[in-house]
Design a protein around this nucleic acid. Structure first.
Lengths: 131, 131
DNA sequence: TGACCAGGTCACCACAGGTTACCGCCGAGG
DNA sequence: CCTCGGCGGTAACCTGTGGTGACCTGGTCA
């Protein structure tokens, strides 16, 4: 069972689990790419996520399917056509993601400013990546 | 400059950058631990985040300070006392995080169910971690 | 002959995060 | 007196794994 409300200090806390998932590199992109239409095919997703390799796309889709966010429908034609879409669960994540996007769009410039201010203030020993 | 609205496909998209930051392992915990009071000291944070090492705590706090989420105040007593707190920017993230937490608390059980259903359906070749 | 489809497989690496040890300084306890 | 622990970290080192790129299949369409 997942932890109780506000129990963000517990590693099994639902919020942390959720962040682990949607924080993965391509997940937010795929949510956008899948949310646009009802169903998208594999190669189309590749095109919409420039830079992704087919391996990572396949892996990510499988994880998302496993978690119930994404549906996978194989048409038994030859060659098989595979259609991906968002499940109701996946679509229900759109609202929280939109809130996050709004915050990011209004405030990320401040973060950039803070970051460059910090870097000019202390040009030595700056934490390089560790995002 | 960060990318335009909805441009989730751009790697410099603000939403992705935000997710990179708050998706980091201890960040959500620290936001909770710091949000409770005005200021918290280093050792107190260590106690509130069970399992974190002082190195990782220091690293994470520095990144958060660099991004303008966390303030750091050193009292020049001897030995110096260091107080950490949330900046206004950091506090403004509380709302989006709360939305995320609400979603997680109501829906993560579904995710767990989907996951175990998937695993019993296809016990072989299951994607193990790759979160 | 080639390209597209939906991936699978192998090899590789960068790095976030963990571990352990250590520092100077202090006050409390025996 | 000496030692022990708390404070706020730093330095060195190691590992797991998410991500990458290159190459493979096997069929169909043009």
């Amino acid at each position: 069972m997942t932890a109780r409300r506000g129990d963000l200090l517990d590693p099994s806390c639902p919020t942390r689990q959720l962040l682990d998932r949607i924080g993965s590199k391509w997940v937010s992109m795929l949510f956008l790419a899948l949310g646009a239409e009802d169903e998208v095919r594999f190669a189309e997703l590749r095109r919409r996520a420039p830079g992704i390799s087919s391996k990572v796309l396949a892996d990510t889709l499988r994880v998302l399917e496993r978690d119930g966010f994404v549906s996978r429908r194989v048409e038994p034609t030859v060659p098989p056509a595979v259609h991906y879409g968002l499940t109701p669960l996946g679509r229900s994540l759109a609202a929280p993601l939109a809130v996050l996007r709004d915050w990011a769009e209004t405030h990320m410039a401040d973060v950039d400013d803070a970051r460059s201010a910090y870097d000019t203030r202390a040009p030595v020993g700056t934490p390089k990546s560790m995002l």
